[in-house]
Amino acid sequence: MDSLTQIVLGIATAELIAGKKLQNKTFLYGAILGTIPDLDVLVGQFMSDVDGVAIHRGLSHSLLFFVFLAPLLGLVITKLEKGLLDFKKASWLAFWCLVTHIALDLFTSWGTQILWPLEHRFALKTIFVIDPLYTVPLLISLVYVWRNKDSFLRMKYLKRGLFFSTGYLCLTCVLKLIAVHKFEKALMSQNIPFQELMVKPTAFNTVLWNANVATPTGYYLADYSFLDSQPISFTFYAKNRDLENKLEYVADFQKLKQISEGWYLVTEEKDNLYFNDLRFGLLNADSKQLQFAFSYQFVANADGTLRANEVPKKKRDGKMLLQHIITRIKGN
């Protein structure tokens, strides 16, 4: 999830565990502890585009890492809060602030290696990385927590915020199940055989959902809004095996294949090859210039080998995508 949401959740977790002892200091500790796993993004800034993406939500989001990190952080907190928190309580505080971070990340579309060093990434794909309906109730409850010193009132407001935010998170799971059923029903009615179906929400909402449908020869992409009145329409994109063969021995290509979990298309434009991650949808569906949300261009190094550079996104791309989503949410 986005940094603000993780900070808010970290504070809520810290308050739940140590609010009686630390009072408003939970805002400081919760914000810091809730941010720590995402510091891998800063490390990625010193790496190549592909390697930086590859480490995100890897080691820093693993339960094994937290088992060793939590006691160290607990020791620091104990030193800072002498007489308020013992080592066990401080370590417990650190551990759960870290764990709730990855627990929330599991609901998003970007996989999380909670069992690192195992390579498998877990992703429930029920909520977008930024969703105000999750964050705002929790944020409002924390405002009331900050303004009150009475432990009973603080816990009362905190539980209300957690009730609404967690309730919404559970609701997203139900909405996804409904969306999956709609896509499966549409595929069946249109006689489209498929190997795998991936369904995830679009940006900032859980009303409009995207589907990626894998077949032996390519992918069908489609979207569905709960306000739709017409049948779901699927668009087919063929796998470009000839273009993939040109990249077979390129290291970045093999890494991107693993990162995308096999959901990708290789395209060519003006003699340039592009790797497109299908998991996060299209920015522009123009047949003359197909543009995906996450795309990488292969460029030549000085020694003639190829590396992949992420195609930068422009402000107008985001504005155009948001306008499309708002329009599409209203129905087809």
Rank of each mutant, 00 (worst) to 15 (best):
M1K: 05
D2H: 05
T5L: 01
T5P: 04
V8Q: 07
I11W: 09
I11R: 09
A12I: 08
A12W: 04
T13L: 07
T13C: 12
A14R: 00
K20M: 02
Q23G: 05
T26M: 07
Y29K: 03
Y29R: 01
Y29A: 05
T35F: 13
L39N: 06
D40P: 01
V41S: 09
V43N: 05
G44D: 06
S48P: 00
D49V: 00
D49I: 01
V50R: 01
D51Q: 03
V53Q: 12
L59Q: 00
L63E: 03
F65M: 10
F66W: 12
P71M: 07
L73F: 00
L75V: 01
L80H: 11
K82H: 12
G83W: 11
L93H: 04
F95A: 07
C97A: 03
C97E: 03
T100D: 06
I102R: 02
T108N: 14
L115C: 02
E119L: 08
R121K: 15
A123G: 12
I127R: 01
V129R: 01
Y134A: 01
P137R: 07
I140L: 14
L142R: 06
Y144G: 00
R147P: 07
F152C: 10
L158T: 00
R160T: 14
L162T: 05
S165T: 14
L169F: 04
L169P: 02
V174A: 12
V174F: 13
L187S: 08
S189T: 07
Q190W: 07
F194G: 00
Q195Y: 07
E196G: 08
V199M: 06
N205L: 08
V207F: 13
L208E: 03
A214Q: 14
P216S: 06
L221H: 15
S229A: 15
F234C: 05
Y237G: 07
K239T: 11
K246R: 15
E248C: 02
V250G: 02
A251S: 12
L256W: 02
K257R: 12
Q258E: 14
S260V: 10
E261V: 09
G262P: 13
V266Q: 09
E268G: 15
E269M: 12
N272T: 14
D277N: 05
F280W: 08
F280V: 06
L282V: 03
D286I: 00
Q291F: 00
Y296H: 05
Y296Q: 03
N301Q: 14
T305R: 09
N309W: 09
N309T: 10
K313A: 07
K313E: 06
R316N: 15
D317N: 10
G318Q: 03
G318M: 11
G318L: 13
K319A: 15
I325Q: 07
